[in-house]
């Protein structure tokens, strides 16, 4: 089996369709995974190794073997699969994740804890610290 087919089989086992969320292969390609791998060249060797194996093995058996015998390869394959998936714009849209966004705010706005009484309760419970002895 070619590397791209092996990877997609593994990725679809790791990330299948579930509820509203699509399977890996429905939204991501092997080329997407290769682009992700370009950000982590340290994983390339393990990733390549992780896609070698007995084509007769099921995806689960392949991953089970990797997990037991070659942790670095298992980590490389799974890291690339999950990061590629959650970088995908459609997946982010379904999750409601805009990425690590910039949020504007008014630094001088009165915070709710100052008006709803909650911080007042903290103050009402009194001093917490132990003063310097002898002062």
């Amino acid at each position: 089996m070619s590397k791209d087919k092996t990877f997609l089989a593994l990725a679809d086992f790791l990330i299948p369709a579930h509820g509203d969320m699509p399977a890996f292969g429905s939204v991501c390609s092997f080329a997407d995974a290769e682009k992700a791998l370009d950000f982590r060249v340290d994983l390339k060797e393990g990733f390549d190794r992780g896609l070698d194996g007995d084509p007769a093995l099921s995806a689960e058996a392949h991953l089970e073997r990797l997990n037991k015998e070659d942790g670095a390869a298992f980590s490389a394959v799974t890291t690339i699969a999950i990061c590629t998936y959650y970088m995908n714009p459609r997946v982010r849209e379904l999750l409601g994740y805009p990425g690590q966004e910039s949020v504007q705010y008014d630094s001088k706005a009165t915070q709710v804890y100052l008006t709803d009484g909650s911080l007042g309760h903290v103050l009402a419970r009194g001093r917490k610290y132990r003063p310097t002895p002898g002062l």
């Binding site: 086992f13 790791l14 990330i15 299948p16 579930h18 509820g19 969320m21 689960e60 991953l63 089970e64 997990n67 298992f74 799974t78 999950i82 999750l95 409601g96 994740y97």
Partner: peptide, 19 residues
């Protein structure tokens, strides 16, 4: 087990925790 964190479990863990 690695399966505890993948498959349907992955989606359910992320749905419960993310955000």
């Amino acid at each position: 087990r690695f399966q505890d964190f993948w498959g349907a479990n992955l989606h359910e863990n992320v749905a419960r925790r993310f955000g």
